[in-house]
Amino acid sequence: MPHDHSDHDHPHSLLPPDPALRVKALETILTQKGLVDAAALDEIIDTYENRIGPRNGAQVVARAWADPEFKAALLADADPVLAELGFYGRQGEHMVVVENTDAVHNMVVCTLCSCYPWPLLGIPPGWYKSDAYRARAVREPRKVLADFGVTLPADCAVRVWDSTAEVRYLVLPQRPVGTEGLDEAALMDLVSRDSMIGCGLAGPQ
């Protein structure tokens, strides 16, 4: 019975790429030294692959749309509000939420590396980490927005926030018109990851 290998049988295990071998080497050495606990690594991976993602951020946005008091508190000082929802910790230590309005559209970048609010959005997408985005978001944000299919009115200012290891930002997108009466779950479905980075608008996904 022929099997799936297209070219030839592998007599030995498929050799991982060089960086993967180097990561294994690091992990083995540090484990032997007692600096690393394999179970803790698995737990971290599981968390970001399966449990933490942009739905957390979407919940915050949906609640802010529906509850003016919550929104006011969130914009004034996000940390205690997010802590209460359980969205804190790793890379979310100091969060600032910036609100999009008719007059200003906010966008988030990290020009240094790729600082990103993990507790609210999970792991950043590849494009957020690319040189192209990191350089162009500051230099020509409107063109970047156009690449994402977002065209803003000429009188709407664009403000770009540069994340750091100490401060991370979440964009509160504008609530789409005609969504009065939707419950929180339905509102959440309108909130894309990109809209919370400021590279998209909220709306039907």
């Binding site: 690091l26 690393v36 606990d37 803790a40 690594l41 698995d42 971290i44 692959e49 792991i123």
Partner: peptide, 9 residues
Amino acid sequence: AQLFALTVH
């Protein structure tokens, strides 16, 4: 993922 987890840990 392994590298990320190792660093965070």
